[in-house]
Nucleic acid binder design. Structure first.
Lengths: 205, 205
DNA sequence: ATTTTGTTTAACCAGATGGTCAAAATTAGA
DNA sequence: TCTAATTTTGACCATCTGGTTAAACAAAAT
């Protein structure tokens, strides 16, 4: 078969590039380092992807997709809002625990090249309208406090993402650089963030 | 006077370096660009600061100091906790509105060189003990919900910082890239974040 | 005025880096 | 098996980048 080897090499490159780009960012990453990580010749990188920029864009798109957990299910599930939010937070933090490097990488690159970010987002076709409608209905029904739904979403994201994005700093000043303790803290966040949010927005009858 | 000219140039360099480093990060910044920004010869950078690394460290320390707003006052003021937290959030968001680039820069660099970060922090002598004691007392007194004070602090920071750190992304997906609207949103956050937090942790008698 | 000290510059250098290319090696097809 | 196409490599190149240096320039000191 023609594709077995090809796919294999291409995949090796993508894996290696993801590792290096995420660790060092576009500016800090070196093509040679990616080649080493993939165990191949540097020229092969240019054979499969024309340039560093092109390779990076492939990686960024690939990585970026991961940061949108199953939003559809979140919106349309027939369960109470507090359960919905709980599941959303849990899924999100689970994702970040498996990919703790994601936030810093994304945050770094969205600042470095916002135009490219815009093109990627447009290509994703995210529809927030449904999400906002759903939240609006919950507010109308008196289930949660009335507020700008964008505010609510950004709060959820901030509470979930920030501890990962700022990990080295938070671990250092609040946990005496105790890696295990911080990991445990992040794990518990699935519960504590959910509680924190619900405590704030739930209207107890 | 000997120092007039010297201080002037050194300051010009520091200003220029801060601008460029914050915009591009350590890896993305170029010495030539800093020199241009300062309107001087590139060799002068090395005359005043031995190397790029040394210059960067000077900038990082300088910038890093700014991210700790007056915590002492926050701890010891003789006002109710809800007012304290409100003031803290307001001060923090004010700081970020004046320096919207700060979060992304810090987040980027704490990942790039955590050891250096550690050395800077040790040199700052931050005492969180007092802060935690104060929060503990408020919990004991039944003024706020009992919780890990580190959790509370990280929540406050996340809610305040995240919208700035993720600005290009949030502005794009939630505000249709409307710069003014997002700025207005950030301004209102001084109130909404405070409300969000207090709603969550305040125990109404 | 002249020396001395400190400041600034243009020219240059060595190493790194992204990228190219022709040849070698491997694979597929006849 | 022999040929054609594809994949992989080592060597190489142009450019960029941090850093150096010797000389020009300015300012103090004598």
């Amino acid at each position: 078969m023609n594709n077995i080897k090809k796919d294999n090499t291409e995949e090796k490159i993508l894996d290696a590039a993801q590792t290096v780009f995420i660790r060092k960012g576009m500016d800090g990453a070196r093509m040679q380092e990616i080649a080493n990580e993939a165990g191949i010749n540097k020229a092969l990188l240019h054979y499969y992807f024309r340039s560093k920029q092109k390779l990076f864009e492939a990686i960024f798109k690939q990585v970026f997709k991961q940061i949108f957990p199953d939003i559809k299910a979140f919106i349309h599930a027939e369960i109470p809002i507090e359960k919905k939010l709980g599941i959303f937070v849990e899924k999100y933090i689970d994702l970040l625990m498996k990919n703790p490097y994601l936030p810093s990488f994304i945050l770094q690159e969205i600042h470095r090249d916002p135009e490219f970010l815009a093109s990627v987002i447009k290509g994703q076709g995210i529809d927030l309208h449904e999400l906002f409608t759903m939240l609006g209905k919950e507010m109308e029904a008196g289930n949660i406090r009335k507020m700008d739904p964008r505010e609510l979403m950004i709060n959820i994201l901030g509470l979930s993402i920030f501890p990962f994005a700022a990990k080295p700093l938070m671990q250092l000043i609040f946990f005496d650089n105790d890696k295990k303790a911080y990991k445990e803290f992040l794990k518990q966040r699935k519960e504590t963030v959910k509680d924190f949010i619900l405590n704030s927005i739930l209207l107890k009858a």
